[in-house]
């Protein structure tokens, strides 16, 4: 028991700031304004189903794009010298030192009508609106959460022993076979933590859609606004979102375990 003592401050923190709020949200979700048990708030929340599905879709697409972008990048970083690696990682982190809202606002300026990108496209005769649609929201999300995909991937990839790749080459594997037999299986834990670290916040984030999107909200925005007037419905949406994310995590972890065992 002695070894657990240093964890006490954290356990206290967790009790006050994790368990208690969680219980409160669940309590609110299953009660009405008089404090009786009721599923009314879930019925109210069903109005936002479409927004919910839209948010999950946006989150899925953003996560997929992040993965496709981050995977080759993380691999090439992990093959650089130690010094170059820490340098590149630092440059990846620099944007994250800036305020989240400021970075989204920068995207508004880039994508807006008569903005730099719009001007360049107009010059080439392409006349499209870049902002106020789902595409702009996805761009914002990918930009916002890409480092969270790169970092875990880089961590696992830099741990892959170079001699294994060399051994595979000696035994006559081509590039694709090396990837399939060695790099991919060994990087799965990184993929899983990367995907969770991107999917979870993109599904529940707010403000990005309000700034980059048009009239279509995301579920995070809806929760924020509903909560202002109705704690019960807001909590019900939050509970549904939590269940979906929790299930997603469990499935992802299971998938990872099996791959690792196999």
């Amino acid at each position: 028991m002695k070894t657990k003592r240093p964890a006490i401050p954290y356990l206290g923190w967790m009790l006050v700031f994790t368990i208690v709020p969680l219980v409160m949200v669940v309590y609110y979700a299953f009660t009405d304004s008089k404090g009786h048990f009721s599923l009314e708030s879930f019925r109210n929340a069903s109005v936002y189903s479409e927004v919910f599905l839209y948010s999950l879709l946006i989150a899925l697409i953003s996560t997929a794009i992040c993965l496709v972008l981050a995977y080759p990048l993380a691999f090439s970083i992990s093959r650089c010298s130690q010094r170059a690696q820490s340098m590149i990682i630092m440059f990846l982190m620099v944007p994250m030192w800036m305020n989240f809202l400021l970075r989204i606002y920068a995207w508004v300026l880039i994508l807006q009508n008569y903005g730099p990108l719009d001007m360049i496209l107009n010059f080439f005769g392409v006349d499209i609106t870049l902002i106020g649609n789902s595409g702009a929201v996805i761009v914002g999300m990918v930009y916002e959460f890409l480092p969270f995909m790169i970092l875990p991937l880089h961590t696992v990839m830099s741990k892959i022993d170079r001699s294994w790749i060399e051994a595979a080459q000696d035994l006559g594997c081509n590039g694709f076979q090396i990837f399939r037999k060695i790099i991919f299986p060994l990087s799965i834990p990184g993929i899983i933590s990367g995907v969770t670290m991107v999917f979870v916040p993109t599904a529940s984030t707010f403000l990005v859609a309000q700034y980059l999107g048009g009239t279509q909200f995301m579920i995070g925005d809806v929760i924020e606004r509903v909560f202002q007037s109705d704690h019960h419905t807001g909590s019900a949406i939050a509970v549904v979102l939590m269940v979906v994310i929790l299930g997603f995590l469990v499935v992802m972890n299971r998938f990872g375990d099996e791959e690792a065992v196999g």
Partner: peptide, 13 residues
């Protein structure tokens, strides 16, 4: 009123 407004905002265009 607030509830219906959020619903209008999140309704499909």
């Amino acid at each position: 009123m607030q509830k219906r407004f959020v619903e209008a905002c999140s309704a499909s265009a």
